[in-house]
Amino acid sequence: MSLDSSDVEKIAHLARLAIAPEQTERYAADLSNILDLVAQMDAVDTTDVEPMAHPLHMAQRLRADAPSEPNQRERFQANAPLAEAGLYLVPKVIE
C-alpha cells in the first residue's frame, strides 16, 4: 500500500494536524512502510471469524442515569488555555 503526498494532506486534515509541505513526502514514506507491515493481514482467511471487540467479551456495564460526580467547573477550567466567566474561549466561529 503506497500513499502519496495528497493522501497525506487529506489524512492530516481529517486528523486536524497541520503539516508543513516539506514534511508530506516523509510522512507518505513512513505511513506507506507501516501499511506494508499491516498488509501481512491480507494473507489470512477470516471468513466466519467473529471480530474481537473486547478481550474478555464483556458487555458494557450500565448505571442509573443520575449524576455521579459533583460539579467542579472552576477546578477543571483551571487547566484551560483560555477561559472566562465559566466559558472556554475560542476564535470567533459565527460571524
Binding site: R16, A18, A80, P81, L82, Y88, P91, V93
Partner: peptide, 17 residues
C-alpha cells in the same frame, strides 16, 4: 487546544487552532 493542553499562538480560526 480548548479544554486543556497546549494551544498555539494567535489562531486565525477554530480549525487553525
Amino acid at each position: 487546544g480548548v479544554r486543556y493542553g497546549h494551544r498555539c499562538a494567535e489562531p486565525k480560526d477554530l480549525e487553525d487552532l
